[in-house]
Simulated scan of single mutants.
Amino acid sequence: MHTDRFARGPSVSLVAAASLGAYTALVRPRLLTWGASSDEVARAYPGDELVPDADGSSTMATTLPAPPGEVWPWLLQMGCNRAGWYSWDRLDNGGRPSADRIVGDWQRLVVGQRLDAVPSGDAWFTVAVLEPQKTLVLRSSVVLPFGRPFDPSSGTVPGAYVDSIWGFHLAPAAEDMTRLVVRTRSRSRPRLLTRPLDVLFWEPAHLVMQTRQFHNLLTRVSARA
């Protein structure tokens, strides 16, 4: 019995290691580049320089059936206590439905403005780059493990943190359509803790949330068009 138990142990470990290796080599690259072309993945975008030594990055994309000028207002009004994030509202908007119309009061946005990340307002994104009808980059810098925001420009970096950007980049496409490319970049410490969480949780979670946002933006833009 002891021999069988020890024989099974290494087999389970080998299967787990092989599964993780296959995920890392085959699945993860597709997960991080969902919908994006090789050119879009390789391209540099405004805001990338804010996290120059990124530990993690993703580039996802979709095509929307309207020109950039009609897509841009939907992005301008994003945020909790505003239009929401057009994703899974129970997870990222306190259960409140994201807006299904353009609201004039939410169309004013400036660099440095805070957008609530949660309904309580205890965490937020900061507008880091704003180029009308082209680029909107949001930055989030939080202390781990409690998610308290900090200012990365202060020169004081916590021992445990995540500093990340979430960038939305619009480009005209054929037949009055828009190519929407979403680029994320992040740097986090301590890497021994944050890397497993990134690979096994945050990256798949981002795919789920981002593709849902793409779907809901497509629905809204199509209806308005």
Rank of each mutant, 00 (worst) to 15 (best):
D48R: 04
L50Q: 03
V51C: 09
P52I: 02
P52N: 08
D55Q: 10
D55K: 04
S58R: 04
T59L: 06
T59P: 06
M60H: 11
A61L: 08
T62I: 14
T63D: 12
T63I: 11
L64W: 03
A66D: 05
P67T: 05
P67R: 06
G69A: 08
E70D: 15
V71K: 01
V71P: 02
P73V: 04
W74D: 07
W74L: 01
W74Y: 10
G79T: 00
G79Q: 05
N81C: 11
N81W: 02
G84K: 02
W85D: 04
W85L: 01
S87Q: 04
R90W: 15
L91E: 12
D92T: 10
G94H: 07
G95W: 09
R96A: 13
S98Q: 12
A99D: 08
D100Y: 03
R101Q: 09
D105W: 02
W106Q: 07
L109I: 09
L109E: 09
V110E: 15
G112P: 04
G112F: 11
Q113L: 15
Q113D: 15
Q113R: 13
R114P: 13
A117C: 14
S120K: 15
G121S: 09
A123S: 14
W124V: 05
T126S: 07
V127E: 07
A128F: 01
A128R: 00
L130Y: 01
P132T: 07
Q133W: 02
Q133M: 06
T135Q: 00
L136D: 00
L136G: 01
V137Y: 04
S140C: 11
S140Y: 03
S141F: 02
V143M: 12
V143W: 02
V143R: 12
L144A: 08
L144G: 05
F146G: 12
F146V: 09
G147N: 12
R148H: 12
R148P: 13
F150W: 11
F150Y: 15
D151I: 10
S153E: 13
S153F: 06
S153D: 13
S153L: 14
S154G: 14
T156Y: 15
T156G: 14
V157Q: 12
V157M: 11
V157C: 13
V162N: 03
D163C: 08
S164V: 00
W166K: 00
G167A: 07
H169R: 00
M177Q: 14
M177D: 13
V181A: 06
V181K: 01
V181T: 04
T184Q: 00
T184R: 01
T184V: 02
